[in-house]
Amino acid sequence: MKPQDFHAAITFLSAATLADPFLALCSAVAWLDPLALLDEPLIEPDYYAGGDEWVNIGAAWDISRVCFPAVYAETTQAIRTESSSQRLADQVCTAINRHLVGGELHDLEQIFFGIPFFGLGVDLTDTDFFASPQYTPLVEVYAWLGVAVDPEQTYSLPDNLPEAAQVADVLAFSLRQTGHPTHEKLAWLLDWMFSQTGNTAADYTDEEIYEMGIQPLAWEPNELEFNNLMHAEAAEIIGNAMQGLDLLLADDGLQAELRANVESLSKQMKRIKKEKPHDRPQPDAQRLSRSLCWTDRPQQPDEQRSPDDLEGLQVRRADAA
C-alpha cells in the first residue's frame, strides 16, 4: 500500500465514523470522555504511590471527572500533548485549587488524602498565632474576659477558659438581641474567640482536627460542596469577627460596656453556680442577658452589610457545619 492510499483509507474511515451516529458518538467519547469506558476507577482511591506523578495525575483525572468536569476536560487534552509529568501534575493541581474554597492542594500527591481541610480556629496554645500582628490585640480582649494569654508562653489552655466561654456565649446572645451591626460583629468575635460559632472550620485548628481523628471528606460532589460552603461561611464569620475586633478597639465606650457586662455576668454566673452547681448557663442566656446593657452605636461607614445579610448568617449559625 502506498502512503497516499493509506492516508486516503484513514480519511475515508474518519468520514465514515462521523457519518454514522453510533460510531460518531463512540469517537466523541474516546476523544473527550475516555474514562467513561472504565467500569472501575483508573486509580483506586486508597492506592498511594508517593512520588509517582503519573499515578497522582491518574487519580486526579479520575476525581476531576466526578468533581471538576472542566478540569477533567483540560486534563484529558493535556495528557495527549504534555510529556512532562511534573508540569502536567502542577497544571492539574492548580486547576483543582481554583475550585477549592478555604484550602488548597500544595502538591497533587495530597489528592489521596481527601479534600484538604484548613482549621481557622483560634489556637490559644500556639505562640506564633498571637505573634501575628492582626491577632495580637486578641490578647487584650481575652484579658477583659478574664482569660490570661501570655503570647510568649502559651503551651496550655488557661484553667478558667470554660467559664469565660460561658460568659462569652451569653454576651454574644445579648449582643445579637440588640440587632445592631456593630454588636452583631462583636458577637461573632466572641463566638470565634471561644470556638462557639458552630462552624467546624472556624472553631477548630488543624491540630485539634487531627487530634480529634476527624477524617478529611471524600472527593465526592456533595462533600465538596459542603466543604466549600463550610469554608466560605468560616471566612465570612472570621471576616465579621475581625471587623468586630477593629470596631471594639476603636471604641472606648464599647470596651467599657463590654468589661462592665463581663463583670456583672461573671458575678451572676458564679452565684448561679454556687446555688445550682449542675445547672448549665445556656438555658439561662435569655434571662441573664436581660441585665446587660449595650448602647446603640453610630453606623460605621464600612458597614455595608444589610440586616438581611446578617440575618442569613445568623440563621446559618444554628445549623453550621
Binding site: 466523541a28 473527550l32 470522555d33 467513561a36 468536569p69 476536560a73 487534552q77
Partner: peptide
C-alpha cells in the same frame, strides 16, 4: 471543547 466535555460527561 471544555463545554462539550462537561455535556458529554453528564450524558455518559
Amino acid at each position: 471543547v471544555i463545554a462539550a466535555t462537561v455535556e458529554l460527561v453528564a450524558y455518559t
